[in-house]
């Protein structure tokens, strides 16, 4: 979008005093993410992980061509609901971010923002070769090659494109990971935040958002 909205500007209070507005600082929380330890009570954490694995709310955000493969999951033929998988329209309420296919730099920016707005524990599932190594867009000037340099990926589903069965298998894998307590991708993101941010900032040249989008 146009740049003037992110630059500093002066507004005037009702009394006519000037107020300087610095959009990035003033509108957005600037804090960085923290690591959240799992509960030390094993049985409690196991129970929670069971619930997490049985209730995967997926964010309805199709980034690339793979989005078309996600829709059949909800049809009678595949019926992902029976595994506790359902779509949510807002990142605040979603647990799983399915990155469905190639990511241009422009889309990556939105993906990062949305991922950061989700509440932890949160999981990333990457679809197709494009997210693994760039796929057929490996030498494009505008498409990323490896998603795991920008976001902590929990599960990759290979293929170009993977079919819904593969996706279901991916979800199954994700469940296993969560159940075993290894679904801590978001903590990894917080731990290695500087590295992720550096990678992100390397390709997103006009960085016009706070470092972490709460």
């Amino acid at each position: 979008m146009s740049k003037e909205h992110t630059e500093k500007r002066i507004v005037y209070s009702p009394e006519g005093d000037p107020i300087e507005v610095n959009p990035l600082q003033d509108y957005f929380c600037e804090d960085l993410p923290e690591v959240h330890k799992a509960s030390s009570i094993a049985i409690l954490e196991n129970f929670r992980n069971w619930a997490r694995s049985r209730s995967l709310w997926v964010l309805g955000f199709g980034t690339g061509c793979g989005a078309i493969e996600m829709r059949p999951l909800m049809t009678p033929k595949f019926d992902a609901y029976r595994y506790g998988i359902q779509w949510r329209p807002t990142p605040r309420q979603a647990d799983v971010f399915v990155v469905s296919g190639y990511l241009s730099v422009k889309t990556l920016k939105r993906v990062i923002r949305t991922y950061e707005q989700m509440q932890g524990p949160k999981y990333v599932m990457a679809l197709g070769s494009c997210t693994i190594n760039g796929g057929m867009y490996w030498d494009s000037y505008n498409t990323i090659n490896r998603l795991d340099y920008y976001l902590p990926v929990d599960v990759y589903v290979a293929g170009c494109m993977p079919r819904p069965e593969a996706l279901l298998a991916g979800f199954d894998q994700l469940k296993k990971i969560i159940r075993e307590g290894r679904g801590e991708g978001y903590n990894k993101y917080a731990e290695e935040f500087a590295w992720y941010k550096a990678n992100q900032k390397k390709i997103i040249k006009d960085w016009d958002m706070p470092d972490y989008n709460w």
Binding site: M1, H5, Y27, F28, C29, T90, N213, W214
Partner: peptide, 18 residues
């Protein structure tokens, strides 16, 4: 709960400007 500021809302992957 983390206190956030006014534009920290899920805004369809975009951000509000004004």
């Amino acid at each position: 709960a983390k206190k956030v500021k006014q534009f920290n809302i899920g805004y369809a992957a975009e951000r509000p400007f004004l």
